[in-house]
Simulated assay, not measured.
Amino acid sequence: MNILNICAYTWDIGGPARIIYDHAGVAIERGHKVTILSPMSPNDRLYPAPAGVTLVPVLRTPPISRVFREYSAPLYAWLKAHIHEFDIVHCHGIWHFGSLAPFLLDQKVRKVVTIHGLLDKWAIRHHYWKKKLLSVVLQKRLLNRADLIQINNTDEEGDLLRYLGHRHPNVAIIPNGIPMAEFDVLPPKGQFRAQHGIPAEQPMILFMSRLNIKKGLDLLLPAFRDYVARHPNARLVLAGPDDGYQDTTEAFIRDHNLHDSVTLVGMITGDDKKAALADADVFVLPSYSEGFSMAVLEAMAAGTPAIVSDRVGFGEVIRETGAACLTDLTPDSVADSLERVLNNDAYQAQIRQTGQKLVRERYDIHVVADQLLAQYQRLLTRA
Rank of each mutant, 00 (worst) to 15 (best):
M208F: 08
H196P: 01
G240E: 10
Y227F: 15
D218C: 02
T263V: 10
I268A: 06
A223M: 10
I205E: 11
H259A: 11
D260C: 08
A234I: 06
K215H: 05
V262I: 14
G266S: 05
A194P: 01
L221F: 05
P232C: 12
A239K: 03
D242R: 08
D226L: 10
R235A: 06
P199F: 11
L238H: 07
I213P: 01
D260Q: 15
M267T: 03
D271G: 00
T248H: 13
A200E: 14
A229S: 14
H259S: 10
D226S: 14
Q246P: 02
A239C: 02
T263Y: 09
G270L: 02
A229C: 08
R254P: 06
E201R: 01
Q246W: 13
M267E: 06
H259G: 00
A200R: 10
E250M: 10
I205F: 08
P203M: 06
N257W: 12
L219P: 05
Y227D: 12
P232S: 12
Q195F: 05
D226C: 05
R254H: 14
V228Y: 07
P199E: 13
A229K: 14
A251P: 00
D247K: 13
T263R: 12
R225D: 12
G216T: 04
M267N: 03
T249L: 14
T248Q: 15
H256S: 12
G197D: 08
F207K: 00
L264F: 08
R230N: 14
F224L: 06
L220E: 14
P203D: 11
L264N: 08
V228A: 12
G244A: 08
H196N: 04
A251K: 15
L211H: 00
D255K: 14
H231Y: 15
N212C: 06
R230G: 11
G266P: 01
E201K: 05
D271W: 06
A229H: 13
V262L: 09
G266I: 05
T248I: 12
S261W: 10
G244C: 09
L211D: 00
G197K: 01
R193L: 00
P199D: 10
Y245M: 01
T248G: 04
D260F: 08
T263M: 11
P241G: 10
E250T: 09
E250S: 06
L264T: 00
R235I: 15
H231L: 08
R225C: 03
H259C: 03
R230D: 15
D271Q: 12
R235H: 09
G216M: 05
A234T: 05
M208I: 00
L206Q: 00
P241Q: 14
G216C: 07
